[in-house]
Design a binder for these strands. Sequence first.
RNA 1: GGACCUGUGGCUUAGCCAGGAUAUAGCGCCGGGCUUCUAACCCGGAUGCCGGGGGUUCGAAUCCCUCCAGGUCCGCCA
Length: 554
Amino acid sequence: MYFTTYTMIREALAACTGEQEVDLGDGGDHADLASTIAFRLAKVRKTAPARIAAGIAAELAPSLATHDITVEALGPYINFRFGQRYVAEAVREALAPGYGGLPEKQQKVCIEHTSANPNGPLHVGHIRNSILGDSLARAFAKAGYPLEVQYYVNDMGRQIAIVAWGFDNLGMARNEGEKGDHYVARVYIAANRAIEADPEIKAGIDARMAAIEQGDPETVRRFRTAVELCLGGIKATLADLHIGHDRFMWESDFVRNRHMAGVIQRIALLPEAKNEGTLSVDLSAFGFEKEYVIRRSDGTSVYAARDLAYHEWKAGNFDVNIDVLGADHKLIGAQLQCTLRLLGEQPPEIVHFEFVSLPEGSMSTRAGMFVSADALIEEVTARALEEVTVRRPDLSIEERSAIARSVAVGAIRYDIIRVSPEKSTVFDWKEALNFERQSAPYIQYAHARACSILEKAGGFEPEFAFATGEEIALAKHIALFPRVIAQVVEERRPHLLSVYARECADLFNTFYRYNPVLKSEGATRNSRLTLVRAAQNTLKEALETLGIDALESM
RNA sequence: GGACCUGUGGCUUAGCCAGGAUAUAGCGCCGGGCUUCUAACCCGGAUGCCGGGGGUUCGAAUCCCUCCAGGUCCGCCA
């Protein structure tokens, strides 16, 4: 309803003014939509903006009135207000299952996210990547795109060689009940300490790097065992956070299947290539100071070579490729894009996010300085269970635990997604454990309240007679949901959805406070129940697109 | 030193790319509201030279320049 109404008004304005761009935007408190085109026309026509606005409003009023839209000039602003017909139709649309979904698209989309090195568990910095990527993926799916989500497994880097060395030489046993990723981290940290103490060990690491590149079976087996041990733990953490990947792409596969060799060959033929011991690409013409190294002087490949092969493969298999990467990858990401362009391949789009640090400094797996996602989930779940137990002593421990898990995952996901990715943040336990505020539980609670009303009401005949300010404000906001999904996808900014969902909950709570539903009668009761159903459905769809459970009771 | 990102009430934060009408919310603070559909809620109040300075524009939190502060990167690591 929103899209068709917007388009209709835009076209009416264009026809009336003869302008292509009609400066039509949100009207804030003043209107549902407003145009500021009179300012621009004032210059050309040498007439006061208010006079122009009044003229346009008068001209458009009769035809828009037939669509139940009023036009009014207020000074230089042309304000459009939607009437009952819009509100009724918007609520009707919002009753449908899957509301907010957009028409099916043809372009195949691949979103790569998380892709953390398998040398330890995910920490609270990694999950900013995971949550951003997963929310974006959910939005793309809702917007009708065929989608594949990938995790690129760096299974042959120096870190993994260090882990493999640690397993071979340190004789560290796995603790009782220890997750694989935490065990791998312990070995990795200890191995790094050993290297610091004895630099001679480095030769053993280098030997493993060369062996893995040559595909030495025993080395491959040892690396793979370590990586799979770690990846199993990472997958479990991601599953706890409602995050899944369709495919895990192993870096070493691009070496084994000769894909990387092909890319290196093509790079060597570029005019920008420099083959002087190392193979590198001179990107100085594109503003990069440092050369982009592809192959070491000893003939082994560096990460960049495998990454180029992976992205070349992706370019050939998908129409849109999106990588979610931390700010530390900005330079290499740009170098990768630039080099792919030189090769004539479509480079990926990169969605960057800034760092999450601890109050005592940056996180580092190697130094063992991080707060793991598992620890965060455990703490927040325990805190949520306390809260549920206070509020709902009537429920069984199983029911309370299930609610606590949903609340905890929602709180974590929401806390991370609500902040714009370009802002760096400092992790704060106190804040993470507090959900009496702008949070997922607040939105989940509004949804649960709506469910409770609907359950108590039983059956009803849908009606669409809305009268109070709270009813209309809620209905009009519900109507914006498909637009928000479109925006999230177009701008690759899922945090817009978190803002929208919270606003929906705000408006529902205000409606709830002033508009008794079950105690009203006749058309009012049916209309309000219809609106509650629409709000419940919208909140549910919005929450699920954010990867948060829409609880029916809490 | 260079490149990129950030700076909005005491704290956290939306809006900035596509400039417009009194700058968005939350926490905290002050004052109200549960015999009423779940108070993880609602209502009212105080708190802002939108980092500083210059510029463009009828109009700047938003665009440009500059300075200051914080983060990130600049490896034959990934």
